[in-house]
């Protein structure tokens, strides 16, 4: 029970940090309004999916280094398939890309289980492979996207009965994020499978001896990670309108947010809410730095330094916990 409280305490603390950051943002830039919040939500979207992908695997006691490359591959695939195609064709592309992410993720898991090579090596090798595949699909940023997909994450949601002033603070991107994650995460968390994920992350041997199908669960964990990364890739294409074969810094960001979100890198602990709030925190820090008129390149350095510091801190805590 105390452990449960402590875990929720971490998330509550993160929320408090987020609110403090919002207040700070308002102080730095009094004009910061609903529009800026909308663009923050759009910027967060791909990161949030990357983090969710990483979280599922980390909870199951692994790590997925191929998240960013998977996003790049799904993004260029979607962008090149939709380039110049009809609006309706996108209805076929979206499930196809998601299925591709799921299948490639499952391949990750399968390779880990079959070859018994550690996850870190397999996903590193897959990082090379997926990056290469992304370059084969599109060798330079390009492609296109259906208009309705773009419209899906831009603007706000009109809620009947609410004044516009409040409406404006509910960007579609945020809603898309919440809906997608809830559809995947809540049933998972409530199911036997979700329990198995936590079980193999906590202690593989104990899980095996209590009858959890360890191998199958591991494969499913990586498949889900691939699916979420595919969502991230789609979100990337939706927000930029094109696909880029060279992935952004999503891998490091995902690990940093997972650690900051209170999910132990050893596995078996934490939830999805913490890492998602952590992504907002990290992105908002970036927004603040930009608002302070700091050179964008310097912002990148500070951001990188924060992420490294967070990961170092997380590793330190894990080490302390073990001793």
């Amino acid at each position: 029970m105390s452990h449960f409280l402590r875990r929720q305490g971490w998330v509550v603390g993160l929320f408090a940090l987020l609110i403090v950051l919002f207040i700070a943002t308002r102080i730095i830039q009094p004009a910061y309004g609903s529009n800026d919040f909308g663009s923050l939500a759009r910027a967060v979207l791909p990161y949030a999916f990357a983090v969710a992908a990483q979280t599922v695997v980390v909870i199951a006691g692994g790590i997925d280094l191929s998240v960013a490359a998977m996003m790049a591959l799904t993004s260029v695939t979607a962008a090149s398939m939709m380039n110049g195609a009809s609006e309706e064709y996108a209805l076929f592309v979206v499930p196809f890309v998601l299925a591709m992410g799921f299948a490639l993720g499952a391949l990750n898991g399968l390779l880990i289980v079959v070859t018994r090579v550690p996850d870190i090596v397999v996903t590193l090798a897959m990082l090379f492979v997926l990056q290469g595949a992304a370059l084969l699909v599109l060798d330079a940023p390009g492609g296109g996207i259906a208009e309705w997909l773009k419209a899906l994450i831009s603007g706000t949601v009109p809620i009947p009965g609410l004044p516009d002033a409040i409406d404006a603070w509910v960007p579609k991107a945020l809603l898309v994020l919440i809906v997608c994650l809830c559809i995947i995460w809540i049933p998972l968390r409530r199911s036997r499978l979700g329990l198995s994920l936590y079980a193999i992350g906590s202690s593989e041997l104990a899980a095996f001896r209590s009858g959890v199908p360890v191998k199958r669960t591991r494969i499913i964990a990586y498949a889900l990670s691939g699916l979420l990364a595919a969502f991230g890739g789609l979100a990337l294409t939706m927000s930029t309108g094109i696909g880029a074969p060279i992935p952004g810094p999503y891998l490091l960001a995902s690990v940093a947010a997972v650690v900051l979100g209170g999910v132990a890198l050893g596995g078996g602990k934490g939830g999805l809410l913490g890492p998602i709030v952590a992504v907002f925190v990290l992105r908002l820090v970036r927004t603040d730095l930009t608002l302070l008129a700091i050179d964008p390149n310097v912002t990148a350095i500070i951001e990188g330094a924060i992420m490294v510091a967070v990961v170092m801190f997380g590793a330190f805590i894990t080490m302390r916990g073990r001793q």
Partner: peptide
């Protein structure tokens, strides 16, 4: 062979050789 295929090949080499050594 394009750059992409080369990367795929390098990835497969790393995976295959590691599995073989194991």
């Amino acid at each position: 062979m394009p750059e992409g295929a080369r990367r795929i090949l390098f990835g497969l080499i790393v995976l295959f050789v590691t599995a073989a050594y194991l």
